[in-house]
């Protein structure tokens, strides 16, 4: 078995907010008819979480499930358990027009922590960050690349992007969190 390593191996930056690459995170892209009963049942069985509504993200004992588009979910689980979760989902959805893929090593996850975390995100995304709250998943862009984020609590954003741009996203997040660059509006 090869030794899995995350994109930036847990890199951190401390500015007026802390930016941290979260290491290995299990991530599964699940596509199919989100309205199908079998889909909701499979998601619940694997993660313990009910099917999230449009634009929502919910966390349960077995993981986090985020609504990414009308036919796509992002399921976040332990990195070590991702393959098993994919197998379970695939088995449960064998008769559905659905697809589960382990994308853990094709993505990177960051946490942006601090009182002014909203400000860091607002500098990089056109999303109305002031209107966000825990439970809302926002797919948008981060400077020049695609990314998605949601709030774990009032002072923490969880950010997901493609692994190929992890270095770029870390740099723009760190730059946006540079001491002295606070705007003071969010």
């Amino acid at each position: 078995m090869s030794n899995a390593v995350s994109a930036l191996d847990g890199a951190t930056y401390q500015g007026f907010c802390k930016v941290q690459e979260m290491g290995l995170v299990g991530m599964i892209t699940l596509r199919g008819d989100l309205g199908a009963a079998a889909m909701a049942k499979a998601v619940k069985a694997v993660t313990g979480v009910a099917m999230p509504g449009q634009g929502a993200v919910t966390t349960g004992k077995g993981g986090t499930v985020a609504w990414m588009s009308p036919d796509e979910l992002l399921v976040m689980v332990d990195h070590a358990g991702a393959d098993a979760a994919v197998a379970k989902l695939s088995k449960a959805l064998a008769k559905e027009h659905a697809l589960a893929v382990n994308v853990s090593d094709a993505r990177a996850v960051f946490h942006v922590t601090g009182q002014a975390a909203r400000e860091v995100m607002a500098k990089l995304s056109p999303a109305d960050v002031s209107a966000l709250a825990p439970g809302i998943m926002r797919r948008t862009r981060l400077a020049q690349v695609a990314g998605a984020f949601h709030m774990l609590d009032e002072g923490t954003f969880e950010v997901v992007c493609f692994r190929s741009v992890a270095g770029y996203v870390f740099d723009v997040l760190a730059n946006a969190a540079k001491p002295g660059s606070e705007v003071g509006v969010l």
Binding site: Q54, G55, S69, P70, P126, A127, D128, R138, R139, R141
Partner: peptide, 11 residues
Amino acid sequence: PNCGVMADETE
């Protein structure tokens, strides 16, 4: 109308 967000032109 697909995801319900107010999307900026740059998105």
